[in-house]
Design a binder for these strands. Structure first.
Lengths: 99, 99
DNA sequence: ACATCAGTTAGACAGTTGTCGAAACATAAA
DNA sequence: TTTATGTTTCGACAACTGTCTAACTGATGT
């Protein structure tokens, strides 16, 4: 359940995205999500890196708040999907802001 | 005196750049540097935002360490230039890593 | 109903970061 | 040689962040 991107990202979200990307572990998580084109189970992420469930949950929340991922819940499972259109808008924004 | 970019940015520098960009003040500074196509005096940055000299110096060092800016010293003055090619490489890297 | 499993929340802790004033340094001007 | 000016460094402090274990919630299976 994510809000579609019509216009440019609000200033606020740009900061959230950058802070989300700034953590190496979150960056790795995003890379993992980017590998597949559909959703990735939370457990699959957890198994791919030495991390506690609590810490992973915290990072996934940060990514969600930044708008970089979607979560699709299926019973007791959580599946995540990378929101490529947000990432695209983000890159576009940096380009117009700075370059 | 900045090292030219031949190949892709090292993993390490990607993290430095993201952390550098994640602070709103540093982002503002970069926007300011991006406005002009030549160098911007340190004092001009300082005057454009309410910030102590010490704090500005700290932020400029972070930007330099990340490789995002060059400094050209002229006597007691410091002039900064945005390194657009690093920014470009950074965007390219995110695109290939994640999208 | 009970036990198990996936994920979240609470609470704590260490390490990092942004901030400033004061002092130091370096250059320029008088 | 003083004095003034631009920038950096030092030392301190509050706020934030990543991490964990333990406890909790909710769903599934026996």
């Amino acid at each position: 359940m994510s809000i579609p991107i019509r216009t440019a990202l609000p200033e606020n979200q740009i900061q959230l995205i950058m802070r989300a990307l700034a953590d190496p572990r979150r960056y790795d998580i995003l890379k993992k999500l980017g590998d597949g084109h559909n959703t990735t189970p939370c457990a699959a992420i957890r198994e791919s890196m030495r991390i506690s469930a609590a810490t992973l949950s915290h990072h996934m929340r940060e990514l969600e708040i930044a708008g970089l991922v979607d979560v699709v819940r299926d019973g007791k499972f959580a599946n995540y999907r990378l929101r490529r259109e947000v990432l695209e808008a983000f890159l576009e924004r940096i380009r117009t802001d700075l370059i």
